[in-house]
Amino acid sequence: MAAGNEAQQSTPVYLGALLDDGEGATVTLVAGQTRLVVHRAVLVAGSPVFAAMFRHDTAESRGGLVDVADVDGLVLRELLTYLYTLRAPQLASLAPRLLAAADKYGMASLKAQCEQQLAAGLTVDNAVATAVLAVRHCCPGLRQTAVSYIKGHTHRVMATQAWADAVRTQPEDVVELGKMLAETPPESSSPASPGPGAATQPPSGAAARHTPPPPDDAAVSRLRSLSQQERGRRLIEAAKQGAVEQLRELLAAVADVGAREEGLLGSIRTALHWAARGGHVAAASCLIGAGAEVDARTSLQQSTPLHSAAQSGHAGVVRLLVGASADPNARDCRGRTPLHRAAAGGHAEAAAELLLAGADRRARDGGGRIPLDFARTIRKQQLVDMLTQR
């Protein structure tokens, strides 16, 4: 028994050394500046794609030279190491690229192990990239786990730079992801149905790292002794400043999340209006999570928080609000939508978020003007191009 175990443990080491040695190897794989000489039999046995390549009369089969496109040298090395040793690398940073390569070359077992690593390492910052990867490479278990995780942390995920990058570079994938978010129940303690090789749910530690500590009991107790009016006033001030910890303490002390305050020119705004106007993503997320009305109106201009965020060019808050079902085509007292406001201010990124959310680029305000008219007036070519594209 001991001898068998020793042989089992030493075999991968021996085969890995065979890859490094290259003796008897007949095929050269090229990825950029990386060239690796390998054994044809190992490629054929481990990958149906390579097997088909070498069993037919192809240029690769005749010349023994294979150009591995879309795979960098480091990933190719790990891919081959797995073919020789059947051991997946433990470098978490490689898992997304290695999964894509494993899918391309039909290596189901390696792909499943990469899925496990990605599911176990889900965080607010990498959840959207993981979900998009799972959609692109048909990983149903990982996809369900990632989408469920995002559903349980929606506002915080949408406030990340990763979400902004995905919206900008992979809009079709984000739209598809949005459809899945609408259909998937939020993450809970019960495990999601796993796909082949995927983890059933992200470990509690991944979520715990991003869970803020509960509000200080003593601070909450002191705030509860104040009048409702004073708590509302302090909530507004905290929203203006983006003071998330103060907001959480005030909300825990049952401050009215819909509290309003008179601003410039006599317009009365909610705390969410102020947070949106100031570009305070975390504060806005805190208020929305506490039940703030996302389409609340100011008293004079009839503006929503989305109007405020768009006019100020705060794309992160725009993204957060539309993710919370704010109306991208809401009209103010002059018939202007948030897209009119973003265009008038020359804010291309905010306009892009609104268009992705379904904003009507042909909407006319009370004066008959569409958002494109404002972009042309201020000569913002990027906005003009964006608003004229179909």
Results as ranks from 00 to 15, higher is better:
G289K: 04
D67H: 15
R143K: 15
A119V: 15
D103C: 08
V49H: 06
V44M: 06
S109L: 14
T200M: 14
V254N: 10
R362V: 03
D103K: 06
L122D: 01
R269P: 00
L80S: 05
S47T: 05
A359D: 02
I236C: 04
C333Q: 01
S299N: 05
E249Y: 05
R233W: 08
L118I: 10
V30T: 14
L264F: 09
D70K: 07
G32L: 03
P328Y: 09
L264W: 10
Y84E: 12
F374C: 07
Q382F: 02
G205M: 15
L91F: 08
S93W: 05
A290L: 02
A206Q: 14
P196N: 04
R87H: 13
T388F: 13
P203C: 13
V71T: 05
E60T: 10
Q8M: 15
L250C: 13
D20H: 06
A206D: 08
Y105H: 11
P48Q: 08
L306S: 05
R55I: 00
L355W: 12
T160Q: 01
A25T: 13
I150C: 01
E176C: 05
G368H: 13
L339T: 02
L99T: 12
A112L: 09
S10P: 00
V244P: 04
T11S: 00
T28L: 12
L235Q: 11
V27L: 10
V317M: 09
R390Q: 06
Q311D: 07
G121R: 07
R136D: 13
R136I: 05
L287K: 07
G291V: 04
D365I: 00
H347Q: 01
V71Q: 00
E245Q: 06
V44R: 05
A88Y: 14
A2I: 13
G279H: 04
L83N: 01
T211L: 14
D72R: 08
E349S: 04
A324M: 02
R362K: 10
S221G: 13
G258S: 11
A357M: 06
L86F: 08
T123A: 11
V175D: 01
T169P: 00
G366N: 01
L118K: 07
A296W: 03
C286V: 09
Q9E: 12
